[in-house]
Amino acid sequence: MQYKWILFDADETLFHFDAYQGLKLMFSRFGITFSKQQFTEYQKVNKPLWVDYQDGKITSKELQNIRFQPWAEQLCITTQEINSAFLSAMADICTFLPGALELLNSLKDRVKLGIITNGFTELQNIRLEKMGLLDTFSALIISEQVGIAKPHKGIFDFAFTQMDHPNKHEILMVGDNPHSDILGGMNAGIHTCWLNVQGTPLPEGIDPSYQVATLDELNALLNC
């Protein structure tokens, strides 16, 4: 294997991120039944906020506060309280993607592993502990802590410093999002692998080094 470091995105690369089920669980704890229609309305607000966050137009705190503002007012709690409740619920329902645990187990004694995520600190720490992965990753880079989100080159530069500046040709970035993960890796000058479960056409201007449909396929690729 030519790589000494393999960096992963977290959500929908290693872990399922079912926001609807997480919101249902969180609201049930407040005595509220959360519907698909309410989820659709939530996503109309949430999705554009994530684009603005990745583009550096808003901060992580602004994203967290804006998306839950109406619900916080209804429940008479702060937006940060409801955001923490959501992240806790998401950690409680967390599961591996198919092949993720097998992939990590096959790699952890041969290469150094890291995570670069645009997710939030509170979820990452709880989830890694819950899944028994606290000692698996040598680097955990969270955009909320760095203040820069993928695909910006700056979050990768920060990661490389934490990794003691390995040769870039020895680093592989794996992710499901062609814009944040693959374009981000391209911007940073490292090899990339797009986990393209749905067989989506490549967006213009994005050229991953590899493309796989499953983590089992990636495992085989890295072990050949």
Rank of each mutant, 00 (worst) to 15 (best):
K112I: 03
Q43I: 10
G22N: 06
E41W: 07
Q74S: 14
I155H: 07
T78K: 11
Y210V: 08
R110S: 15
T78F: 07
F8S: 00
I82A: 09
N118Q: 09
G99F: 09
S35L: 09
T40I: 14
M173H: 11
E144G: 02
T136S: 12
L97F: 04
L107G: 05
T13M: 09
S88E: 15
D176E: 04
D164F: 13
E102N: 09
W71Y: 15
M173E: 00
E170M: 11
S35P: 07
A91E: 02
A159L: 05
N46K: 08
E204Y: 08
I58F: 10
N83S: 15
I171V: 15
I115Y: 06
T79G: 13
F137I: 07
M90N: 07
L218P: 02
K47I: 14
G132I: 03
I182A: 09
D207P: 00
D157L: 13
D18A: 12
E73G: 04
A213V: 06
G199I: 10
K150I: 05
I115S: 08
M90I: 08
L195R: 01
D55G: 14
F120M: 08
T79N: 10
M173I: 06
I32M: 11
G154A: 12
F120Q: 13
M26G: 00
S106N: 11
V146L: 11
K168I: 08
I148C: 14
D9L: 01
N105I: 08
A188H: 00
D18Q: 06
Q80V: 05
I171K: 04
K168M: 01
M163D: 00
I155S: 08
L104Y: 08
T79Q: 12
T78A: 11
D176P: 03
L183N: 03
H165Y: 15
L63S: 06
S60F: 00
A213H: 12
A85R: 05
M186K: 13
Q145L: 14
N118V: 07
L63A: 06
A139K: 10
G175I: 01
F68V: 01
G184F: 05
P203G: 10
D135C: 10
F68Y: 06
I142G: 06
D9V: 04
F17A: 12
F27N: 05
S88Y: 11
K108Y: 03
Y20I: 05
H169C: 14
A220V: 11
L14F: 02
E73Y: 02
V146S: 10
L222R: 00
Q162D: 12
N46W: 06
C224M: 13
G189V: 04
K47T: 14
V45P: 09
D176Q: 07
D55T: 06
V111C: 13
F96W: 06
L221T: 02
L222Y: 08
Q64N: 15
C193T: 02
Q43C: 15
N65H: 14
S106D: 03
F160M: 01
